[in-house]
Amino acid sequence: MKKNVFKGALASVVVIATLSFTNIAKKVDVKDSKVTWVGKKVTGHHEGTIDLESGFLNVEGDKVVGGEFVIDMTSINVTDLEGESKGKLEGHLKSDDFFGTANHKNAKLVINTASKKSGNTYGVVADLTIKGITNPIAFDLTYDGKSATADLTIDRTKYEVRYGSGSFFDNLGDNTIYDDFEISVDLKF
């Protein structure tokens, strides 16, 4: 009897330990998730949205350990303009001057490491691919099991997006567009 109880307890410990370290891919609900962007220039800024095509977070127990997200670059939407101005800016952002969406439909972010900082906040190191060019990026991610949020600052020039950049062109004056743009992500699972 004691031997059976011991075997049962040992089996329970093994099952619980296995379950607690099982890597689960939590699929993102792309319809309820939101990705917004802001690009700044000397004379102001523009903002908009962009669609998440697919994504998941890898979770072990209650801890984020990885993930992968694909953005549909053809969905770039400008929300601070209307009419012809809106259409012109969206077309320009999709052109080869910026993101070249005819040849580079998707951008991709792959989480390499996620280290718990405090509470539900993780320090994330990932690879971001835009226009076929991959660079590392670091940011904080907050995850509560049902949703995740993150704010990323991206240097567009690292991805050969140099149009209007004061880092590459002289005498742009008021036409200078800052190299960094910001992405805010609100994911639902």
Rank of each mutant, 00 (worst) to 15 (best):
D144P: 08
F56L: 04
I177Y: 13
D144I: 05
D72I: 01
E160H: 13
L89R: 15
N103C: 06
G67L: 09
I76H: 02
E60L: 00
I154E: 11
T149P: 02
N171F: 07
L172H: 11
E160M: 02
N58M: 02
F169H: 14
L141P: 04
G166H: 00
T74N: 15
N77F: 04
T149I: 07
N58S: 06
G91W: 07
G166S: 09
S95L: 12
K116V: 12
V64M: 01
E84F: 10
L57E: 03
N175C: 00
S115A: 12
G91F: 09
Y163F: 15
A114Q: 11
T79R: 15
I133L: 12
K117A: 13
T142A: 11
R156M: 04
D179Q: 12
L93Y: 12
T134K: 15
N171A: 08
T113E: 07
A126V: 06
S165P: 08
E160W: 03
K88E: 06
L109I: 14
K94V: 00
T129H: 07
N175W: 08
G173W: 06
N171S: 15
E68S: 12
P136A: 11
D127S: 05
A102R: 13
T74R: 13
V110D: 03
V59C: 00
K86R: 15
V65E: 09
R162G: 06
E68N: 14
F56D: 10
T134E: 00
R156T: 00
S118G: 06
D80N: 02
T101N: 13
D72P: 04
E68Q: 15
K108G: 11
I111W: 02
G91D: 09
S147Q: 08
D155C: 05
V78L: 09
G83D: 07
G67A: 07
I133W: 03
D151C: 09
I137F: 10
S165N: 11
V78T: 14
D144V: 01
G91I: 05
G83P: 11
D155W: 03
G145N: 12
T79E: 12
K63I: 00
Y178C: 05
D140Q: 12
I137N: 09
L172V: 05
A148P: 11
T79H: 09
T113D: 01
K158E: 01
T79L: 05
S115E: 14
E160S: 10
A107G: 06
Y122M: 10
N171T: 00
D179E: 07
N175M: 10
G132P: 07
D179M: 00
V78H: 12
V70Q: 15
A102S: 14
D97I: 04
S167N: 15
K131V: 00
L57W: 08
S115M: 06
T149M: 10
D80T: 11
T149C: 06
L89V: 13
T142Q: 13
F98I: 10
V125Y: 08
T153C: 07
N112V: 03
M73T: 02
S165V: 04
V110H: 01
